[in-house]
Simulated assay, not measured.
Amino acid sequence: MKQSQFERLHQADWQRFETLLEALEHGKRKTPASETFAADYRRICQHLALAQERGYSSLLIDPLQQLAMRGHQQFYRHRSQLTAQVLAFILAGFPRLVRAQWRFVLVSALLFFGSLIGMGLLVYFFPDLVYSVVTPEQVTEMEGMYDPAAHRLGQAAARGANEDWMMFGYYIMNNIGIAFQTFASGLLFGLGSLFFLFFNGLMIGAVAGHLSGVGFGQTFWSFAIGHGAFELTAIALAGAAGLKLGWSLLAPGPLPRSEALRLAAKTSVQLICGVMLFLLIAAFIEAYWSSMNTLQAQTKYLVGAGLWALVVLYLTLAGRTRHAPD
């Protein structure tokens, strides 16, 4: 293709990209065309490579190089700003959001942890109650997973340490499934979230109470205490996000229900983003730390207590300082 034809074919793209660059360089981050910036930047780089390969004149190559260099600066500036925004959300935005939604968080936590502790105590003192929520087959499986003689704790069968990454992926998918179920069911006017919070609390409590009663308490609690700080908190926060959705449908105020739901969803989705982070951390700890059977229980208890303290301090104190990032 001749240079003149190449220029006529793509001149409009280059002019549009230069206009977009000027807007971005002057701080206008939300122009309509900015959504296609990455694709436009890659196209400019492709055109530059073609021009150089075909030996076109420097009168064409030099301006394209300038556009590519300016695009490169804006592209990585945008990526660095995105990274800064993510860090700001993790360090300050998420805990602030949790505190702002404290009413839903409180209701969710009371229901989830209340049912967990209550069922655990009932099963511990009345062992046969475990079969009201857990099948005999599941009870047998749980006993095998937390038998002190097990090679790796919390797993249905012994496996090598080189498979920890497989369990890491399994824990992520399983935990996210539970959290999303608890969150999304809030669309049923909050009843779904209430049900799953109560149900999961009963299930976990029944297992904990039974294993404690049959003498496997030390292996179970030393396994659960570490990742439980993030996993159980995440389930409660997912429930709070679901209750936020349900309340917007039950009490939309002066707004139409669709608009109230839309506004509530913005907050709830942000909560779920933080929940995903917690579940990722929980899965990592569960796969690589909790399942280890070579550490003393006291060590796991100390680390677990530290992780619970860290979660509590993070959610209650992070982002309170005046100069914390927004």
Rank of each mutant, 00 (worst) to 15 (best):
E7I: 15
F278T: 00
F278V: 03
F195M: 11
L313F: 09
A158Y: 05
Q138S: 09
H10G: 06
P63Q: 15
P95R: 12
I61D: 08
L279V: 00
L249D: 01
G190C: 11
V98I: 13
L122A: 10
A240C: 12
H10E: 14
Q65P: 09
T316A: 10
H227R: 04
L60Y: 08
I117Y: 03
G304W: 03
F216V: 07
P32C: 10
S193P: 09
L122H: 12
E143A: 06
T19G: 03
A283H: 08
A149M: 12
A156G: 11
S291W: 01
L202V: 13
T294E: 10
T267K: 00
D40T: 03
L263H: 00
F195D: 05
R29V: 14
L24H: 03
L315C: 06
A265D: 00
M203S: 13
A39H: 09
G160P: 02
F112S: 02
F199K: 15
G93S: 04
A234G: 11
E286V: 09
L97V: 01
G177V: 12
E53L: 04
H72W: 11
G144H: 07
L202S: 14
L64G: 14
Q101Y: 01
A309G: 04
V269A: 00
H26Q: 13
E35A: 14
G226K: 03
V134F: 06
Y301H: 08
A39G: 07
R54K: 15
V214I: 15
G114C: 01
M145E: 14
S185P: 10
A179L: 04
L243V: 05
G144C: 09
S248P: 07
A157H: 09
Y301K: 02
A68W: 10
G215A: 15
I285A: 08
F198G: 08
V130C: 01
A88C: 12
A282P: 12
G246H: 15
L116T: 04
T233P: 00
R322N: 08
A150H: 13
L245C: 06
D147C: 06
Y288F: 15
F37S: 11
I44P: 08
F168E: 07
D164A: 11
